[in-house]
C-alpha cells in the first residue's frame, strides 16, 4: 500500500508532466475520438440494417439477429419463453444452476449484489500506486476469472435449450404410460406440454430447468389436492412465499382445473 503522501506526489508529477510534455486534446485526441464515434454510429446502423433486411413483418421471424417483435403480449397464454436481453443472460443462466428454495436467492440477488459491491470496493481495497499489470497479479487473475465466468454464463444462457411445444406434445402419450396418468389428466397434460411451464420445469426428463424450479414428474406426490394446485397456479407467491413463478390466474378456472388435475395425478413413475 502506498502512503497518501506518495500518491499525492505521484499525482503532482502527473499534472506537471502533462503540462510540460503533454499534447493538446485538439486535434490529437479529438481525432481518435471522432473516428471512434463514426465507427460506433456505423456499427449501430450496420446492425440495424442486418436486423431489418433479414426479417419480415411477421412476428417472430428471426432473421439473422432476432425478430422485429414476437407475438403481442397475452397474459392469458402460457406458451412463452421468458428470455431477457443478452446482457442479463449470465443471470438468466445462473437461475438454472441454483435450486429452489435453498439457493435461488443467491443467484437472483446474491451474486449481482456481490459483483456490485466488489466494483465499489475496488478502489478502496487496491490502494497501491502500482499500475503495471505484471505487478498486479491478484487484480489481473480476479478480473480474468470474472470475465471468463461471465462470458461462459452468457454463452450458456444464449444457447440454453428452449422448450419446443410440438416436441413436448409428442411426449404426452409416453407421460401417460410412464406416469400411469388417468384419462381425466390428459387435457391438462396437453395444456402443460403446449405451454411455457416446461421452460422452467422438467417433466420426466423433458423441458428445461430454470429459476431453480422443481422437477414436476412427481408434483402430486405430496397429495395436497387439486384445490391447492389451483391456488398455487393462481398466485404462487401467496402459497410459497417468495416464489418467482409467474401467476397464471389469467388462464381461467377451467384450464387451471385441468392443469391441477394433471399435476395432482403425477405421482412419479410407478405411481408414487
Amino acid at each position: 500500500m502506498s502512503s497518501l503522501k506518495e500518491r499525492r506526489a505521484e499525482f503532482a508529477r502527473y499534472k506537471q508532466d502533462v503540462k510540460e510534455r503533454g499534447k493538446p486534446f485538439y486535434p490529437h485526441a479529438m481525432f481518435h475520438d471522432t473516428i471512434m464515434a463514426l465507427v460506433v454510429v456505423a456499427v449501430i446502423i450496420g446492425l440495424t440494417c442486418i436486423w431489418y433486411f433479414t426479417t419480415s413483418e411477421e412476428p417472430g421471424d428471426a432473421g439473422l439477429l432476432g425478430p422485429r417483435y414476437a407475438e403481442k403480449a397475452d397474459p392469458g397464454t402460457i406458451s412463452f419463453v421468458p428470455r431477457p436481453d443478452w446482457y442479463f443472460y449470465f443471470l438468466f443462466y445462473l437461475l438454472r444452476i441454483f435450486k429452489w428454495p435453498e439457493s435461488v436467492i443467491l443467484g437472483t440477488v446474491g451474486i449481482p449484489t456481490i459483483l456490485v459491491l466488489l466494483l465499489i470496493a475496488l478502489p478502496f481495497v487496491d490502494r497501491r500506486m502500482e499500475r503495471r499489470l505484471s505487478r498486479r497479479p491478484i487484480a489481473v487473475i480476479a478480473a480474468a476469472l470474472v470475465v471468463a465466468s461471465m462470458a461462459v454464463l452468457t454463452w450458456k444462457g444464449a444457447t440454453a435449450k428452449e422448450n419446443v411445444a410440438s416436441e413436448a406434445l409428442a411426449e404426452v402419450p409416453q407421460w401417460i404410460e410412464k406416469n400411469k396418468l388417468p384419462a381425466e389428466a390428459e387435457p391438462g397434460a396437453e395444456l402443460f406440454a403446449g405451454s411455457g411451464c416446461l421452460n422452467c420445469h422438467v417433466y420426466l426428463g423433458g423441458g428445461a430447468q430454470a429459476l431453480g424450479a422443481p422437477d414436476l414428474t412427481d408434483a402430486g406426490a405430496k397429495n395436497r389436492g387439486v384445490e391447492w394446485q389451483i391456488e398455487h397456479l393462481k398466485c404462487p407467491a401467496c402459497v410459497n412465499p417468495g416464489s418467482p413463478m409467474p401467476g397464471f390466474a389469467a388462464l381461467g378456472d377451467d384450464q387451471l382445473r385441468e392443469l391441477a388435475i394433471f399435476l395432482e395425478a403425477s405421482k412419479g413413475p410407478g405411481g408414487g
Binding site: 412463452f80 421468458p82 429459476l211
Partner: peptide, 17 residues
C-alpha cells in the same frame, strides 16, 4: 410482445423474492 412481457414478469418476480 410475448418475449418482453414474460421476461418482465419473471424479472419482477425475482425482484419480489
Amino acid at each position: 410482445d410475448q418475449t418482453s412481457y414474460w421476461a418482465t414478469v419473471v424479472g419482477i418476480n425475482i425482484q419480489a423474492s
